[in-house]
Structures are given as C-alpha cells and as structure tokens.
Lab assay of single mutants.
Amino acid sequence: YTAFGDLEVFLHGLGLEHMTDLLKERDITLRHLLTMREDEFTKNGITSKDQQKILAALKELQ
C-alpha cells in the first residue's frame, strides 16, 4: 500500500504523472512547484508544454 502525496495527486490531476519521478529526484515539493519561476521550470527539465499545464492550473487556484 502506498499513499500518494500532494505532489502526486496534483500532477495526476493534470495528466502529468510522468513528471513525478523527475521532481522527486530533484527534491521539488508541491510547495516549491507552486512558487517556481519560468527559468526554474526549464532548469529542472520541465518542458514548456507541461509548464503551461501547471501554470494554467495555478491560475485557477488563485
């Protein structure tokens, strides 16, 4: 049995499950992801397509 964390649930909701391992390897938490700047997305290997999905979701949360 494995409990999913906030990061996994957030990514799954956006259809971005493939990013879970990448972000965990880089010790990026959901809190960090929510406050990242555009250059940090790129530096951490997050594609512009995935970045757009994340940023759109963040706008909806605000």
Rank of each mutant, 00 (worst) to 15 (best):
Q52T: 10
K53C: 05
I28R: 01
T42C: 10
L22T: 12
L7H: 00
H32N: 11
T20P: 05
T42K: 13
N44R: 08
K59R: 12
S48I: 12
S48F: 10
D27V: 01
H32W: 01
F10W: 05
M36Q: 01
L16D: 01
L14R: 07
F4K: 15
K24L: 07
K53W: 02
K24A: 07
I46V: 06
F41L: 12
Q62Y: 06
D50Q: 11
F10C: 04
S48D: 11
L23G: 02
A56K: 14
D27Q: 12
H12D: 11
L14E: 06
V9C: 13
L30Q: 02
L55P: 04
T29N: 08
G45I: 02
G45W: 00
K24Q: 07
G5P: 15
I54F: 04
T35C: 08
H18K: 04
F41T: 02
R26Q: 09
H18E: 08
E60T: 14
L16K: 00
T2Q: 13
I46H: 00
V9I: 11
T35I: 03
I28E: 01
F41H: 02
Y1H: 11
D27N: 14
E40C: 03
E38T: 09
F41D: 01
G5K: 14
L14T: 09
T35N: 11
A56P: 14
Y1N: 10
G13H: 11
F4G: 14
N44A: 14
R37D: 13
F10I: 03
S48N: 12
H18G: 07
H12N: 15
L30R: 02
Q52C: 07
E38Y: 02
E17M: 07
L7T: 06
T20L: 14
E17L: 06
F10G: 02
L11A: 03
M19F: 05
Q51M: 09
A56S: 12
L33S: 01
L14C: 14
K53V: 11
L58R: 15
L22I: 08
L16I: 05
K59Q: 10
G5S: 13
A57R: 13
L33E: 00
T20W: 07
K53G: 05
T42M: 14
H18T: 05
H12C: 11
R26S: 06
L22N: 11
F41V: 04
L7Y: 00
I28T: 02
L30M: 10
L7P: 05
S48M: 11
N44Q: 11
T42I: 09
I28S: 02
G13C: 05
T42W: 06
L58N: 15
Q62P: 15
F4Q: 15
L58G: 15
L7W: 02
T35Y: 09
L22C: 09
Q51W: 04
T47L: 08
F10R: 02
L33Y: 00
A3S: 14
L11E: 00
I28D: 04
T29Y: 03
F4D: 15
T29E: 08
N44L: 15
K53Q: 06
L7K: 01
Q62V: 04
G15Q: 06
T29Q: 07
E25R: 15
E17V: 08
G13T: 11
K59C: 09
H12T: 15
L14I: 13
D39W: 06
F4I: 13
D50E: 11
I28G: 01
T29D: 09
N44G: 04
I46M: 04
H12V: 09
Q52E: 11
E17H: 15
G5R: 12
M36F: 07
E40Q: 06
D39Y: 07
L33D: 00
T35E: 11
L23D: 01
T20S: 11
F41G: 03
T42E: 12
E60F: 10
Y1D: 15
H18L: 04
G45R: 04
K49A: 13
E8L: 02
T29C: 06
E17K: 05
G5E: 14
R37Y: 02
A57V: 04
A57F: 04
L11Y: 00
E60Q: 14
L55K: 15
T20H: 15
L34P: 03
A3W: 08
L34T: 13
K49H: 11
H18D: 10
D6K: 04
T35S: 12
L16P: 03
F10L: 07
D27K: 12
G13P: 04
R26I: 00
D27F: 01
F10T: 06
D21G: 10
I54E: 06
I54G: 04
M19A: 08
Y1E: 15
L55I: 10
L16A: 04
T47Y: 07
G45K: 04
L61S: 15
D6C: 02
Q51N: 05
E40Y: 02
L33P: 01
L7Q: 04
D27G: 15
A56I: 10
H32I: 06
G45N: 09
E17P: 06
D39I: 05
D27P: 02
Q52F: 06
L30F: 12
F10P: 01
T29A: 03
K59S: 13
K24E: 04
M19C: 12
L11S: 00
T47Q: 11
M19E: 00
E25M: 08
E17Y: 08
K43T: 10
M19D: 01
A57S: 13
D50G: 01
F41A: 06
H18V: 03
K49E: 11
V9N: 15
T29G: 08
K53M: 06
R31H: 03
L58C: 11
R37I: 03
G45Y: 02
L16V: 06
L58V: 14
D39F: 05
E40W: 03
D6H: 03
L14N: 09
M36D: 00
D6T: 06
A57C: 06
F10N: 03
T2W: 03
I28P: 01
H32C: 07
G15P: 01
Q51S: 13
T47D: 13
L11F: 06
R26T: 01
E60H: 12
G13W: 04
L30E: 03
L30A: 06
N44T: 10
D6P: 07
Q52M: 08
L7A: 03
L14G: 04
G5N: 10
T47C: 12
N44S: 09
L11C: 02
G5T: 12
Y1S: 10
I54K: 05
T20E: 06
I54W: 03
E8C: 04
S48H: 07
V9F: 07
G15L: 01
T2N: 08
F4E: 15
L61F: 12
M19Q: 04
V9W: 10
